Lab assay of single mutants.
Amino acid sequence: PPDDERKKAEKAARSGNEEKAREILERLGYSEDEARELAKRLR
């Protein structure tokens, strides 16, 4: 489910793995720019 994926992205971002967070968010349908912004904010 998307919620689980989003949680994974948050966890990745918090542990400093912004790249992985961005990949997950892009898979969820965010654009590259949106995903980058979100990954930064989740950190």
Rank of each mutant, 00 (worst) to 15 (best):
I24Y: 05
S31D: 06
E34D: 11
E26P: 00
P1H: 14
E34C: 06
K20R: 10
S15H: 10
D33Y: 12
R27D: 04
K40Y: 13
K7N: 10
P2W: 15
E19P: 06
K8V: 09
A35I: 06
E37Y: 09
S31V: 00
A12N: 03
R6L: 15
D4R: 10
R6W: 15
G29P: 00
I24R: 01
A9I: 05
D33R: 10
K8F: 07
N17T: 02
D4C: 01
E23L: 11
I24D: 01
A35Y: 02
A12P: 03
N17M: 07
A39I: 15
P2K: 11
K11I: 15
A13Y: 04
K11G: 04
K40Q: 12
R43P: 02
S31F: 02
D4T: 14
E19T: 12
S31Q: 05
R27S: 12
R14M: 12
S15W: 08
L25Y: 08
R14H: 09
K11N: 13
R22W: 05
P2Q: 13
D33W: 10
E32L: 07
K11L: 15
A39G: 01
E26G: 06
E18Y: 12
A13K: 03
L42T: 02
I24A: 03
R36K: 08
E37N: 07
R43T: 07
A35P: 00
R6P: 03
I24F: 04
R22F: 04
A39C: 03
E18L: 15
A12Q: 09
E34T: 06
I24V: 02
R27G: 13
E5T: 08
A13V: 04
E5V: 06
K7G: 09
D4F: 12
A35E: 01
S15Q: 14
E34K: 05
E37D: 09
E34F: 05
Y30M: 09
R41V: 10
R36P: 00
D4V: 11
E32W: 07
N17S: 06
R36S: 06
R14N: 06
E23K: 11
D3W: 12
K20H: 09
L38W: 07
E34L: 06
A9L: 05
L38I: 13
E37K: 11
K8T: 10
L25A: 00
E5Y: 08
R27M: 10
A13I: 06
E32C: 01
R27Q: 13
Y30T: 00
R22G: 01
R43H: 12
A39N: 00
K40A: 13
K7F: 11
E32N: 07
Y30K: 01
K11Q: 15
E23G: 04
D3Q: 10
L42V: 05
G29R: 00
R14P: 02
D3K: 08
S15Y: 07
R22I: 13
R27I: 06
E23V: 08
K40F: 08
G16F: 05
G16N: 05
L38F: 07
R43V: 11
